[in-house]
Design a binder for these strands. Structure first.
Length: 569
RNA sequence: CGGGGCAUGGCGCAGCCUGGUAGCGCAUCUGCUUUGGGAGCAGAGGGUCGCAGGUUCGAAUCCUGCUGCCCCGACCA
């Protein structure tokens, strides 16, 4: 490809809307252009990268025996009514009517459509197992689209759905997909982790997310330093502290703490550590007007865990200030579990504290030296907090580290969540009708591109991993328009490299070298060859890798072999 | 959904407070000179200042409403 025929709409300045590196660089490199909130046009350059991701995914899905098909993006409401999701899905589902006033939605996912297809086509256990996939645009009307294509409303997704006679078979395919996803993200050159996700929620027996590690990631993940344990932060279990609670060491005392509402203020005033304080949160209860959740001052509430507690109403709702006054008789900031007339649930770590500090349920008063059992009844314990860096790993091996990740893939055992309500059955070997078991496996293709940039960029622009690069080699001639001899040599070299199977971008614009260098670096082409009159005289080409690891002169003769060696390294 | 902010040429911004009919940089086009890290000079094109009302002799500027976009929030005990 020649730049004279390929639009490189690079920008020196970054549009104001872009916050994170991938969004900035995709705009500056001219890969995407925004049409409306969460809607992006992929330019010819951007699309080349997207297609590279697709290619790797297709190869690995095919290798795993999955079959590609294509389903409509527009889906009839009746199918969603059958699964029950027409009412459950909420405003993220874009719904509309056709000219006959029949309801449709733009597919955010395709469980209903594939299950309908499967129940029509699959009649016998002999047709199982089978795994269908497609790579297709989805639309989810996100509350807050942001970060460019990272969280767009319309995005490209690879979604796969497998069908099985029994759970064992589903488990085997699930494992196969787990391996396949690992292969895909490894091949794409990404640093990723497979992370345990919400188990037990959608009736399935397992769900694994694949996260690309990046500081800008929207999800926090916890992983063990010594085992392969990894989980979404909100799902990571906080183990109860080991050993018995320390014995009380001092008498309880009510002390004045004027104006000290926040943990930090109380700590500063009383000269204690946050871990020595307990904080009390009032939330709506399932059967009681309020329930008190008690945490150590240095810990944070995990809302998912709290919401799952049997005493707590879902969705989790905090009492507002007036409600707090009505229940506790004082303003927020001075709450404590002692003498509070509502059920109390304490986090394991909070229950392990001795001689602790907490609010006295009276304005400007706190208790110090309080002890469970001695000064107030011991409440039931629960895991209510988010794990923190250094907590023991729930599997007993190593300690937890917390990093941020971008969710690029999610695999799920669906069981019969869709097949049962939609009556997707086959006959087994005994001629009996059996509801099929299902799995589903998604990859955010467009998000993979953004995630790759988050992991691979420098101050000059994108540094593509080779499998993702829109072109392999940037061929940059110096002042070619002024030298017929150079023009001929460049043309010959371009043809040679293309013939050798390289995807070459020849910068044949009559521009100053600096402009071309800057553009090629911004769009992140992994290998650069510079050819000049001077080099021609010496029979040499300048070679530079985009990641800066190699920079040397190569002989024009036999360049192909040298390049192959460099690309393999 | 709540809170904050922004809307001026393709992009980035100034002008607004203190009303007088729009300016800078980048980009684009032309010419000349340049040519190993985002060139210089000269010239050109391109904006009903988000939309709709209102105030005023006069509105990008003041007021009201609307729309769009961006950011933050769902930790406060």
């Amino acid at each position: 490809m020649r730049t004279s025929h390929f639009p490189l709409q690079t920008l020196k300045e970054t549009p104001a809307e872009a916050e994170i590196a991938s969004h900035r660089l995709m705009l500056r490199a001219g890969m995407i252009r925004r049409l409306a909130a969460g809607l992006y046009t992929w330019t010819p350059l951007g699309l080349r990268v997207l297609r590279k991701v697709e290619r790797v995914i297709r190869e690995e899905m095919d290798r795993a025996g999955a079959l590609e098909l294509s389903m409509p993006t527009v889906q009839p409401a009746e199918l969603w009514e059958e699964s029950g999701r027409w009412y459950e899905y909420g405003p993220e589902l874009l719904r509309f009517q056709d000219r006959h006033q029949r309801w449709f939605c733009y597919g955010p996912t395709h469980e209903e459509v594939i299950t309908d297809y499967a129940r029509r086509e699959l009649k016998s256990y002999r047709q199982l197992p089978v795994n269908f996939y497609q790579i297709q645009l989805k639309f989810r009307d996100e509350i807050r689209p942001r970060f460019g294509v990272m969280r767009a409303r319309e995005f490209l997704m690879k979604d796969a759905y497998s069908f099985h006679l029994d759970e064992d078979c589903l488990a085997r395919t699930f494992e196969r997909m787990h391996e396949t996803y690992s292969r895909i993200f490894t091949r794409l050159g990404l640093d990723f982790r497979a992370v345990a996700a919400d188990p037990g929620n959608i009736g399935g027996t397992g769900s694994v997310e694949f996260h690309v590690l990046a500081d800008s990631g929207e999800d926090a993940i916890a992983f063990s330093t010594e085992s392969d344990y990894a989980a979404n932060l909100e799902l990571a279990e906080a183990l109860p502290p080991a050993g018995p609670r320390p014995a009380p060491g001092r008498a309880a005392e009510r002390v004045p703490t004027p104006g000290a509402r926040r943990i930090e203020e109380v700590c500063a005033l009383l000269g204690v550590a946050p871990a020595q304080c307990l904080k009390t949160l009032l939330v709506k209860g399932r059967e009681h007007p309020a329930v008190a959740l008690v945490l150590r001052g240095d810990h944070t509430l995990n809302e998912l865990k709290a919401q799952r507690h049997p005493l707590v109403a879902a969705p989790l709702t905090f009492l507002d200030e007036a409600e707090v006054r009505a229940v506790a008789g004082c303003e927020p900031g001075f709450l404590g579990p002692k003498d509070l007339p509502v059920p109390v649930v304490a986090d394991h770590a909070a229950l392990h504290a001795a001689d602790f500090v907490c609010g006295a349920n009276e304005k400007d008063r706190h208790w110090v030296g309080l002890n469970w059992g001695r000064d107030l009844p011991e409440p039931p314990a629960a895991d209510l907090r988010n794990v923190v860096e250094g907590d023991p790993s729930p599997d007993g091996r190593g300690r937890l580290r917390i990093v941020r990740g971008i969710e690029v893939g999610h695999i799920f055992k669906l069981g019969d969540k869709y097949s049962r309500p939609m009556n997707a059955t086959v006959l087994d070997e005994n001629g009996r009708e059996v509801v099929m078991q299902m799995g589903c496996y998604g990859i955010g293709v467009t998000r993979v591109v953004a995630a790759a940039i988050e992991q691979h960029h420098d101050e000059r622009g994108i540094v593509w991993p080779e499998p993702l690069a829109p072109f392999d080699i940037a061929l940059v001639p110096i002042n070619m328009h002024k030298s017929q001899r150079l023009a001929e040599a460049v043309e010959a070299l371009y043809r040679r490299l293309c013939a050798a199977g390289h995807e070459v971008l020849l910068d044949d614009r009559p521009l100053r070298p600096g402009v071309m260098f800057a553009d090629m670096e911004l769009i992140g082409i992994p290998h650069r060859l510079v050819l000049s009159e001077r080099g021609l005289d010496q029979g040499l080409v300048e070679y530079k890798r985009r990641d800066g690891r190699v920079e040397k002169h190569l002989p024009l003769d036999g360049l192909e072999a040298e390049l192959d060696a460099l690309r393999a390294s």
